[in-house]
Nucleic acid binder design. Structure first.
Length: 662
DNA sequence: GTCTTCACAATAGATTGGCCGGAT
DNA sequence: ATCCGGCCAATCTATTGTGAAGAC
């Protein structure tokens, strides 16, 4: 394969990026001291990564896609459009005229496929031995970051878009993806797809700017990283590990209820930054068979700590980090096959970014942790009575939940969580244990989302968004949602007009602005759009021991017509079950541009969101019940409805099913 | 004033050992 | 009689956020 030997210095790639970037920010890779200091960056020079070569080839010359053609002949002659909003490869829209009629709405998005980043942005090199990461803290390159920063919001967050590591960390790649090239292959054999299983939960934290406690003895991440992967060679062996890199070159501080950059990050930090999954190495079949969780990964600030270094990732407080997942094909014994370089695939999920802290700064984050982390159940003393407006998205697990689970069923608050993402497990469980419930179009979906807290956009947006976001994997004719969390309007528009979509991206509509201003600044349907849960790729391997992954129907058109097996949240299933695929054409897509925007009622603004001094007083304080808006009563009454109770009982049961004990 | 460290109580999971019933 | 597996309760270990104290 000629492309495998394509050696591309970073500078060259960067230039390519600028050429094809269609105006998107792109690191030139030359003026970033942090980047230069990164051994990873250095390593990237001269890499021989097939994936990277592929990617480069894609962006460089669509006619040179020889390899792609071999791997995915279906792509040729097909008008395929793929767009990547943030350059992360995390949000893809693939449209193919060769597809059968896409009954996408029938495919509830439970998870979110992120294609790998086959660009030189990830550590090139052989990561057969992840210890190679342990020297420095590489920082995501800031090429695009700089430009974004100039557009920063008052909160210090870039306002134009999805200002995350992906952009300034994977610049050339990002640029390549921003263009619409027929050579942009879809999901091809050998290219893994990774789904962030608990993406909804991550998003809930992310919208408040996730914070992770670091301690000397090490603190587990919550939410922890959990993935499903597909597209691996079932017989090949892989190492799978996570590393954590600086997401930006800033030191951050929490000031005035907001995270603001404050000085430069300290990049001269040593310590382990890599966490190898304990199952590594293992076969592709193994990895695809079950969820890949990193629940025991601990974060520490103890650089000199010698205990459990394998379990600990050393970070610095008040720095922003980006976890990444690496999939490395290795020999059976776990050693890297040096004869076949370029077997590294890296996946970055922007919503998993976090700021390391030694004590929580944002009370919203604290509350989310308490509400969702079973280990913090002891602090849920008054969750029955305290339910403020902004906490409407709190999903307090029922007593039966488990620390193994991050995705709380939100059993008692089904209504409250109906427009949230993290009930997907619940719905899944419900459908599993109540086969007759929620398995068909409109089934068990009569519960009106009439809560006054739900704006029309909130209640309907998923309905229209989901059907628009899908893509088909040409290689296997698989139907997947792009599951993008990005604006549904962009997705809809994109379905018919790629150029328009590009303009959306350029205009920043893709954005996921960090809402440090709290609920009031919750920007778009991004968060409230449960359809952001991309339909997970059907596992190729069924496991009796893993009920979650047990034999999904893979019929791309009708195979998934039943929603009973999907890990979706309530809101997500609503449109799904109304979808045409199930024989119902009830779902009438609305104006997406309208539906994708959410106007958060002022009554549910975060206490941290205001500019008043309340925030400081509220810091480290539980939200006062007195702040509970009128809607609370209504909410409670709906939550206590027998029907909901009944359903939620099943949710709790299924909750365990979803997270089989290790 | 900001940030870090520590002890604390609450909670849950894992482990251990005893008991019981069924199969061989 | 022995072995095995399931069930249960007690104990141990690990985890959580809190809040005070100390360091800078």
């Amino acid at each position: 394969m000629q492309l495998e030997n394509c050696i591309l210095p970073v500078s060259v790639l960067s230039k390519k990026c600028l050429n094809v970037g269609s105006g998107y920010p792109c690191s030139d890779g030359s003026d970033d001291n942090l980047e230069r200091s990164s051994p990873l960056k250095k390593n990237s020079v001269g890499m021989t990564n097939q994936s990277e070569a592929d990617n480069f080839s894609d962006s460089k010359d669509s006619s040179g896609d020889v390899q792609r053609g071999k791997l995915s002949p279906d792509l040729h002659g097909v008008s395929e459009i793929r767009h990547n909003f943030d350059g992360s490869s995390g949000e893809r829209y693939i449209l193919s005229q060769s597809n059968q009629p896409q009954s996408v709405a029938a495919t509830p998005s439970a998870m979110f496929p992120y294609p790998s980043q086959h660009g030189p942005a990830h550590p090139a090199f052989s990561i057969g031995s992840p210890s190679r990461y342990m020297a420095h803290h590489p920082v995501i390159t800031n090429g695009a970051y700089n430009s974004l920063l100039t557009n920063s919001s008052p909160q210090g967050y870039p306002t134009a878009g999805y200002p995350y590591a992906q952009q300034y960390g994977h610049t050339y790649q990002g640029a390549a993806f921003y263009q619409f090239s027929s050579a942009q292959a879809g999901l091809v054999p050998g290219k893994a797809q990774v789904y962030l299983c608990n993406r909804a939960l991550w998003l809930k934290f992310h919208r408040h700017q996730t914070e992770m406690i670091i301690t000397k003895q090490g603190r587990r991440m919550f939410p922890f990283l959990s993935f499903n992967i597909s597209g691996l060679d079932p017989t090949a062996h892989y190492n799978i590990f996570v590393d954590v890199i600086l997401a930006d070159p800033n030191h951050w501080r929490f000031q005035g209820g907001k995270w603001v950059p404050c000085g430069k990050a300290d990049t001269n930090v040593t310590g382990n930054r890599v966490y190898m999954h304990p199952d590594s190495p293992n076969t592709g079949a193994h990895w695809m068979r079950q969820e890949i969780s990193f629940g025991k990964l601990k974060l520490t600030n103890n650089k000199g700590g010698s205990n459990n270094t394998g379990q600990m990732v050393v970070l610095q407080s008040l720095h922003k980090y980006q976890p990444r997942l690496h999939v490395v094909e290795v020999n059976e014994d776990g050693t890297e096959d040096s004869s076949q370089p370029g077997r590294v695939q890296t996946f970055t999920f922007p919503e998993t970014q976090f700021i390391a802290v030694t004590a929580y700064q944002n009370t919203d984050i604290t509350q989310l942790k308490i509400d969702h982390n079973p280990f913090a159940k002891g602090f849920r003393d008054n969750y029955d009575t305290v339910y403020t407006g902004c906490d409407i998205d709190r999903l307090t697990p029922s007593p039966g939940d488990s620390p193994r689970s991050q995705i709380m069923p939100g059993a008692r608050y089904a209504m409250a969580g109906s427009f949230l993402q993290d009930q997907f497990v619940s719905s899944y469980a419900k459908s599993r244990f109540h086969p007759g419930v929620g398995t068909g179009p409109g089934t068990d979906r009569s519960v009106p989302l009439s809560n006054s807290l739900l704006s029309p956009q909130q209640t309907e947006e998923p309905t229209v968004a989901s059907p628009q976001r899908w893509f088909v994997t040409p290689a296997n004719n698989r139907l997947d949602f792009a599951a993008s969390a990005y604006d549904a309007a962009a997705a809809a528009d994109f379905a018919g007009n790629a150029a328009t979509l590009l303009s959306y991206a350029a205009a920043g509509v893709k954005a996921l602005p960090l809402p440090t201003a709290g609920c009031s600044s919750r920007p778009l349907g991004y968060y409230a759009d449960p359809s952001g849960w991309g339909t997970r790729t059907p596992p190729q391997y069924c496991s009796k021991s893993s009920p979650v992954l047990s034999c999904w129907p893979t019929n791309s058109v009708g195979g998934r017509s039943g929603t009973s097996n999907y890990l979706v949240d309530d809101a997500d299933t609503i449109p799904t079950e109304r979808s045409p695929i199930g024989g119902s054409d009830e779902a009438k897509p609305k104006d997406l541009s309208e539906s994708s925007w959410i106007e958060t009622p002022s009554s549910i603004k975060s206490i941290d969101s205001s500019d008043s001094g309340i925030f400081e007083q509220a810091k480290r304080r539980r939200i006062s019940p007195s702040a509970t808006p009128v809607s609370e009563t209504q909410l409670k009454s709906e939550m206590l409805a027998p029907r909901e109770c009944e359903k939620n009982c099943a949710k709790d049961i299924g909750y365990y099913s979803f997270y089989p004990h290790s």
